[in-house]
């Protein structure tokens, strides 16, 4: 295998599965960066644990994507040999970790989203997706319990931690609009009973987030200048560096098996 795999013109179901897979893979990769840097050993273990779950989800989803693609690719081909323009993840998950507040706020927003999404997808007409969703749903609920717990603890902790959480949320907020965007691909799959309806997910996400914000004494930012593009391969500048690092060995030694 040489060069990059081009999956830009994917059929809707493959497109959708890749979106789910890339969210998990990219955030898993980010969380793995916390190894050796956590504020306490227990937290380091928790964050790497989430990374393990997410990379595990990515493997299941990418294997399924490879089957749907039918081009003889493996999960690793799809993870390590696509260029940034072929990654479909949300911008939110590719943002650098910054401090623990930023990581926790991003995690909480994402976990809330995943919980709603995978809860719905357990009833997907696509049985493979439904199976993966059953596992991912359980994991996401556990992650949410942890990230929401820290969101509140830091928000309502010291003046410094409060300020850090508010600053993190203010910075991240413009990347949350994309979570609930829809396009022809998803509209068609929702109609077929395969994908989850973003409009349904949004209201539950809003309700739950408001409850967490109240408890954390954190103010919800205004929806202003929302960013978009991840689903369609238009990313921030951060993704390229992440992929360069993640894909290094597969790119440097084409065709080797590890």
């Amino acid at each position: 295998m040489t060069g990059s795999i081009d999956v830009r013109a994917a059929e809707p179901r493959l497109e959708y599965v890749l979106r789910l897979a890339d969210n998990a893979l990219v955030l898993g990769q980010r969380l793995g960066e916390w190894c050796g840097k956590g504020p306490a050993l227990e937290e380091e273990m928790a964050l790497v644990n989430f990374a393990l779950d997410l990379v595990g989800q990515a493997r299941m989803l990418l294997s399924y994507a490879a089957e749907l693609e039918g081009a003889g690719h493996s999960e690793d081909d799809l993870a390590f040999l696509r260029d940034g323009m072929d990654f479909r993840n949300l911008l939110l998950v590719e943002l650098p970790n910054r401090d623990f507040a930023f990581t926790i706020v991003r995690q909480c927003l994402f976990d809330l989203y995943q919980c709603g999404l995978y809860e719905e997808l357990q009833r997907s007409g696509d049985s493979r997706l439904a199976e993966i969703a059953a596992k991912a749903s359980k994991e996401s609920r556990y992650h949410l319990q942890h990230s929401a717990g820290w969101f509140v603890r830091l928000g309502d902790g010291t003046a410094e931690s409060h300020q850090r959480v508010q600053a993190a949320l203010d910075r991240i907020w413009r990347y949350t609009g994309e979570l609930f965007e829809t396009d022809d691909v998803e509209t068609a799959l929702v109609a077929e009973g395969i994908a989850a309806d973003p409009a349904v997910l949004r209201s539950e996400w809003d309700n739950q987030l408001d409850r967490i914000l109240r408890e954390a004494t954190i103010t919800r930012p205004a929806d202003d200048g929302m960013a978009s593009g991840g689903r369609h391969g238009r990313h921030t500048e951060h993704l390229g560096y992440m992929l360069a690092e993640m894909q290094f060995l597969q790119r440097a030694y084409p065709g080797a098996s590890w």
Partner: peptide, 22 residues
């Protein structure tokens, strides 16, 4: 961890490092 060559190797390595923390 960030440069493991396959997803499976990445999982094994993360799990191992986590064991060390444990």
């Amino acid at each position: 961890i960030s440069r493991a060559p396959t997803l499976k190797r990445k999982l094994i390595l993360m799990a191992k490092v986590q064991d060390e923390a444990g």
